[in-house]
Amino acid sequence: MEIIVCVKHVPETAEVELKIDKTGRDIEKSGLVFDINEWDDYAVEEAIRIKEKLGGNVTVITVGSEDADSTLRKCLAKGADKAIRITDKRINTSDPYIIAKILSKTIKEMPFDLILTGAQSSDDGYAFIGPALAELLDIPHVTLAKKIEFKDRSVIVNRELEGGLEEVVEVELPALITIQTGINEPRYVSIMGIRKAMKKEIKTVSIDDLGLSETEVGIEGSWIHVSEVYIPSIERRAEFIRGTPEEVASKIIEIIKSRGVI
């Protein structure tokens, strides 16, 4: 089974105070810690498990600058066989449609049975790339997978619906499947493991190699364009309870008592 996994190198933002950058169109990213997108981590794990069971190769691909190599190295250390990074300054302002196009041009030249992507990325959360890429490659797709099983030349996928409901669908290979969190337990890799993976080569590709012209990437080729980002004004802001942990606990008890909860 030849498996391709598309991954993204994203900033971890859950616990940090975010600032808007000078352009006003994105957040200030310097100083943030980057890692593999959470959904992609599950996708890489799933790919490696399939390989371990059925044999074959796992290739990870990202579109990004040199910084993203640390994410690719992590995937290689986990057990991916090859890594490709498509890189070009002109890609910087591209929207997800362009990214999907770039990925499709790259993948078209490669052998594959299965493509996995995360269901979405934790930064801009478009949930677009996977199924768009499938359409560009003219293969079927299934999104939000929670379980994957193989049957001859097709795959049986449990996909997540709302409220804990799932549906089972069958799709012919080659296919693209987007992975939902919780499908497996991603393995941990040690720093040592990542160091070892330093020896594996990361192939870089530019948009010229792909035969894409400058007008096809960046703002010109994009469907959507961020005009402004902002920190939301709050309609209903919590009343903050301040003081020592001791005082805070007492106040919480006062509040819940006054509401008749206890």
Binding site: Y126, A132, A134, E135, L136, H141, T143, I224
Partner: peptide, 24 residues
């Protein structure tokens, strides 16, 4: 809808028609 159904449908529909899509 940006739901389990919508995310399965909209991106490939938009690409096949070459109509700009904005999600969520």
């Amino acid at each position: 809808g940006h739901t389990s159904y919508g995310v399965d449908l909209a991106p490939s529909l938009a690409v096949s028609l070459n109509i700009p899509l904005i999600t969520d």
